[in-house]
């Protein structure tokens, strides 16, 4: 049901916009072209930022440095009752959406989607977004260089989201 509604949103939105434009008697075709042209500017300013971020993140990830970190932290995590395999995902989630999705894929395959680990990982992936990507993309596209407290707030929001995910999953499924 929800899936059906969600698949209707885009077509209906387009329909409403086009009809409204015709009613208001504007040149919908020309305006579409004008708007689409703006994407060149955005993409051009966006690309260097994306490249820089992907470059840095890839080197960092491929060094497996996070893996060594997990091994040190494992006893601590067991203490606060967070299943250890989910931890890499929690760390990755704000940094890279595609890697946390890859980890989720792996966890679902290994532990099953209906295990506590599978459920927790699903909820974490579903209730937070990639802070670093959003900062790079959005601020990069308008040439913001001083991001001030943006990263701090973004990461804190992620932390709250992850804590909320852990609590909700524990309440719902145990």
């Amino acid at each position: 049901m929800i899936n059906f509604i969600s698949s209707l949103i885009i077509p209906i939105m387009v329909l409403v916009i086009i009809i409204y434009g015709l009613i208001k008697k504007i040149d919908i075709y020309d305006e579409f072209i004008n708007g689409a042209k703006e994407s060149f500017d955005i993409v051009l300013t966006m690309f260097p930022c994306l490249l820089a971020m992907i470059f840095g993140i890839n080197i960092f990830l491929k060094s497996n440095i996070l893996l060594y970190l997990f091994n040190i932290l494992e006893p601590l995590l067991n203490l606060i009752n967070i299943p250890f395999p989910v931890f890499p995902m929690m760390l990755m989630r704000p940094i890279s959406g595609s890697s946390s999705l890859a980890i989720l894929n792996n966890l679902l395959k290994t532990y099953g989607p209906d295990s506590l680990i599978g459920r927790l990982a699903s909820v974490i992936q579903g209730s937070t977004d990639t802070t670093l990507y959003v900062i790079t993309l959005y601020f990069g596209s308008i040439g913001i260089k001083k991001i001030r407290y943006a990263l701090k707030v973004g990461l804190l929001a992620d932390l709250i989201g992850i804590i909320a995910a852990i609590i909700t999953v524990n309440l719902f499924f145990t």
């Binding site: 579903g126 209730s127 001030r148």
Partner: peptide, 30 residues
């Protein structure tokens, strides 16, 4: 122009906390 404004950061928070109702990718993976 080179510094993030307060509204921009608030918008960022709204975005990064990921207001998703239907996590389609996750459902299909599951």
């Amino acid at each position: 122009k080179d510094t993030a404004s307060r509204s921009m950061i608030t918008f960022l928070v709204l975005n990064t906390s990921g207001v998703t109702i239907i996590p389609t990718t996750i459902i299909s993976l599951r």
